[in-house]
Design a protein around this nucleic acid. Structure first.
Lengths: 351, 351
DNA sequence: TGTCAGGAAGACAACGTTGTCTTTCCCAGT
DNA sequence: ACTGGGAAAGACAACGTTGTCTTCCTGACA
């Protein structure tokens, strides 16, 4: 007979409703009713079913249930971030998770490491798993391939970067303005030779921050020296090396703008090694939990991760609740947080 | 007729194999063969099916597929951590994710915030989703409830804390020894009044670290003063307040052992405020990315997150590959990393 | 010309559920 | 005793796939 617990590899496979029904001496459908807390089951039968379920370690199979309930949700969203171990991504993930929790939704998280092929791969996987929605910090330079997913009704929210080739919701900060303000702040301290440490040129935010840097350099008539712009830096180590090279220039920069938190870290390490922590000013893009404990405390352009994550979740779930208004592009406020490292004045000019 | 794309809420629902088959003029099974790259399909038919699939934005439904392939895996594991935004959890998640990637497995991540009811809730959810395996940093004090899941063949690996009420694999560090070594190190610097800032007493690691602290205090004959042991601290703010109170004692501590990274942060903030950063020694439990940039750089007991995460994944996937050997309890090496804050000597005695 | 091998493709059932419909049974009302 | 009504429980099909078995067709070979 079928309803006998089947052995697989010496281990009893999960019991099914059919087996529970057999043990309780009722029909499969009655078990379903009990499991789903539907009406129409007498207390005695209900009790008998629950006992049988317990005895067999029965666990409701959500996948099968979702399959049958057509048009129903899986209760899972995907979050494709840059690197979950990075504080920005981790904070984002946490904010998204908290919002998802309130709706009984689980979060599948993955790191893309700025690799566009990984982005495609992960999206395909998540779509195959029928996630209800997607949060994406894109690594590719074009997301036209998502058009078919949108057509199929998959809500997608971009974070940190705007979509290209497709118009979907996004939550970003004004990276260009942020970088500009950072440079203006340094210039106000008398600096005229300000170096930029930038991430990969292929990354949208890196491009915008560089543009903001140039905006300010030109507007304020600061030294526009190609030697002061170092990009395509990925790790703290690369940033350290870049700073070492900058400091060795005949006419070295007196201030630095680090385009991302890992670059700030590398830059500060090198300034320490060179004994210049208190003489070269530095502003970092991206705040992180312990920046105030550095020596000197790090001045940053803060992106409020908490707010960004909350906005992302708000939009995504609104879409899931049927919001069909045109795509929104939310820009979250950023702020210059002065802590010391950015307020180091430029040395007196003229030797 | 059935194979006509169905409209749901004004939006075309995902196409199914049936619809693709109808459009391509073949049987459902043939589509299945093409999608799964099975043999027995002529190149022409194959081409026709692929075109139809493309035209309908067909996406293979992994849930349905897994359901049918009995005994097959879902290709998802669950990671129930303390708080994904915390650098320890985030690092762990990343290491697990990397290992999972290599096997085409996705990771469902969730934060428990040390709440045991959340642990139960999340486990139930993940089991319902039929995850292939579970990584758990337990928040509860007893995990007997997992016995039934083990019986059903679910591999479970505990991290950071040992299981209670059930014997399953675990990966931890020797918290007791770590704390002992930290105290010994401080004592070697001449300190006799060393305070402990501890996490919730209900947390296993907090208990062990406290025990290690006491071991050393007693073994070395240091001041065993209940006033110097402050526990149940959760946030940097609470740690700051605790340090402020400690410093206000008639006979204040000359060194601190912070039981967790967020507590180190709070403690250091208060030492700064009090202007005692260079006079009160501090060792933190848990390393984190930028501890070397603090002022003074933070001496820590490092738990190698990368190694821990990799071990966890190794064990979990070995179980999935059929390893039925008795539960392993891996203890990963920790290390005292001297950076400065822990090497501040005690002030001269006598006075 | 007849037979048979082998490849290509389809029919059918099943995975573990749930929606819908039907059956069964008990009791109130006459 | 008979009917009607409603609650409890079951039968059956379906969700989107895949495993197994069967059918069909083409071509080689005797």
């Amino acid at each position: 007979m079928s309803p006998a617990p089947t052995e697989v590899g010496g281990q009893r496979a999960r019991a099914t409703m059919r087996e529970v029904a057999a043990l309780a001496g009722v029909s499969l459908k009655t078990v379903s009713r009990v499991v789903n807390a539907e009406t129409g089951v007498s207390p005695q039968v209900r009790e008998r079913v629950l006992r049988a379920a317990d005895q067999l370690d029965y666990r409701h199979n959500l996948a099968a249930s979702n399959l049958r309930r057509t048009g129903s949700r899986t209760g899972v969203i995907g979050a494709l971030l840059q690197d979950v171990s990075n504080s920005f991504s981790a904070g984002l993930l946490r904010a998204i998770e908290d919002a998802a929790n309130l709706r009984g939704t689980a979060v599948l998280a993955a790191s893309l490491d700025e690799q566009s092929d990984r982005e495609r791969q992960r999206v395909t996987d998540l779509v195959g798993r029928r996630v209800d929605g997607l949060v994406l910090v894109p690594a590719s330079d074009n997301q036209e391939y998502l058009l078919s997913e949108r057509r199929a009704g998959l809500p997608i929210v971009f974070v940190d970067r705007l979509p290209t080739g497709i118009d979907v919701d996004s939550v970003t900060v004004d990276n260009r303005a942020g970088a500009r303000e950072a440079v203006e702040h340094l210039a106000a301290g008398g600096h005229r030779r300000i170096a930029l440490l930038g991430d990969l040129d292929t990354i949208q935010t890196a491009q915008l921050r560089r543009a903001g840097y140039l905006d300010a350099v030109r507007a304020l008539g600061l030294d526009e020296d190609p030697l002061l712009v170092v990009t395509n830096l990925r790790t703290p180590e690369e940033a350290s090396a870049a700073v070492a090279a900058l400091l060795a220039l005949p006419d070295p920069p007196t201030a630095l703008l680090a385009g991302r938190n890992v670059l700030s870290v590398g830059a500060i390490r090198q300034l320490r090694i060179s004994g210049l922590s208190d003489h070269v000013a530095i502003v970092g893009f991206d705040d992180f939990p312990m920046a105030d404990l550095f020596d000197p405390p790090l001045t940053v352009i803060r992106q409020n991760v908490q707010v960004i994550g909350t906005e992302v979740a708000r939009i995504l779930f609104a879409r899931l609740d049927g919001d069909t208004s045109p795509p929104q592009h939310v820009v979250v406020e950023h702020a210059l947080v002065q802590r010391g490292s950015g307020e180091i004045a430029a040395p007196e000019r003229g030797r």
